[in-house]
C-alpha cells in the first residue's frame, strides 16, 4: 500500500470519532438521568463537561484539516475526510443538546412540575441507540446499515408528540405552570433534534460509499430554535 501514512492517520481519526461518539452518548444519557435524580451537582458536571467534547471536536477538525492539506486525498478518501468534518460537527452539536437539558434542569429548580422522566429516557435511549449504530455504519462505511436507521426516527418523533400534547394539556388546565411546561417542551425538543442529527450522519455514510449526496428522512423543523 503506497498510502500507509494516510491510512494510519485515518484509522487514528476513526478511533477518535468513536470515542467522541461515546462521550456524546454518555452525556445525553447522564443529562436525562439527572432529570430523574434531580441531582444538581451531577447536572452541573454534565453542563461543564461539554467543554471537553468541544475541545475534542476542535482537535479532530484540526487533525482532519492537516490530513487534507498534507496528504491531498482524492476520491473516496476525500469524501471520507470531508464527511468526517461534518460528522464531528454533528456530534458536538448533539452534545450541546445534553448540555441544554442540564441547564433546563437548573431552571426547573425545585418547582414541582411532573417531569415525564420515563418518556425522556425512552427518547434518549432510542436516540443513543441510533447514534451508536449510525456511527459504526459511518466508520465502517456500511451504506445498508446507514440507510435503515433514519426511519427509526419516527419512534422519537412519536414520543415527542406524546409529551408535547400531554404538556400542553397540563398547561391549559393549569396556566400557572406555563413556564415550567415550556421547559419540559424544550427538553423534548432537544431529544428530538438529537435523533434528527443521526440522520445527517447516515446521509454522509451513503455519500462516502456512493458519492451521492441525498436527503434522508424528513427533518421538517430544521429551523427549530435550539436550547443550549
Amino acid at each position: 500500500m503506497p498510502r500507509e501514512t494516510l491510512d494510519t492517520k485515518l484509522s487514528q481519526i476513526k478511533d477518535e470519532i468513536y470515542l467522541l461518539g461515546s462521550m456524546v452518548e454518555q452525556s445525553v444519557l447522564d443529562s436525562v438521568d439527572t432529570l430523574r435524580t434531580r441531582d444538581m451537582k451531577e447536572a452541573k458536571r454534565v453542563y461543564d463537561e461539554d467543554n471537553i467534547i468541544n475541545e475534542k471536536r476542535y482537535a479532530l477538525e484540526n487533525a482532519i484539516i492537516i490530513l487534507l492539506a498534507t496528504q491531498q486525498p482524492f476520491a473516496r478518501d476525500l469524501r471520507l475526510l470531508s464527511a468526517m468534518l461534518l460528522v464531528v460537527n454533528e456530534l458536538e452539536r448533539m452534545a450541546d443538546y445534553a448540555k441544554g437539558i442540564a441547564k433546563i434542569n437548573f431552571k426547573i429548580g425545585d418547582s414541582n412540575i411532573a417531569i415525564p422522566v420515563r418518556d425522556f429516557q425512552k427518547m434518549a435511549e432510542q436516540g443513543v441507540s441510533m447514534l451508536h449504530r449510525g456511527l459504526s455504519a459511518f466508520i465502517e462505511q456500511n451504506p445498508n446499515q446507514a440507510a435503515a436507521i433514519p426511519q427509526e426516527d419516527t419512534i422519537v418523533d412519536d414520543l415527542y408528540n406524546k409529551i408535547y400534547r400531554a404538556t400542553i394539556e397540563q398547561a391549559i388546565a393549569n396556566p400557572e405552570i406555563i413556564d415550567q411546561a415550556n421547559n419540559i417542551l424544550w427538553i423534548a425538543h432537544n431529544l428530538e433534534r438529537f435523533a434528527d442529527r443521526v440522520t445527517n450522519i447516515c446521509e454522509r455514510t451513503i455519500f462516502i460509499t456512493t458519492g451521492e449526496l441525498m436527503e434522508m428522512g424528513s427533518s421538517d423543523d430544521e429551523n427549530g430554535i435550539e436550547f443550549e
Partner: peptide, 15 residues
Amino acid sequence: FTNPREKTTEDYISG
C-alpha cells in the same frame, strides 16, 4: 477526482 466510476481510477488517483 471526487467520485470516479471505475475502481482502477479510484485506486490510481487515491494513490
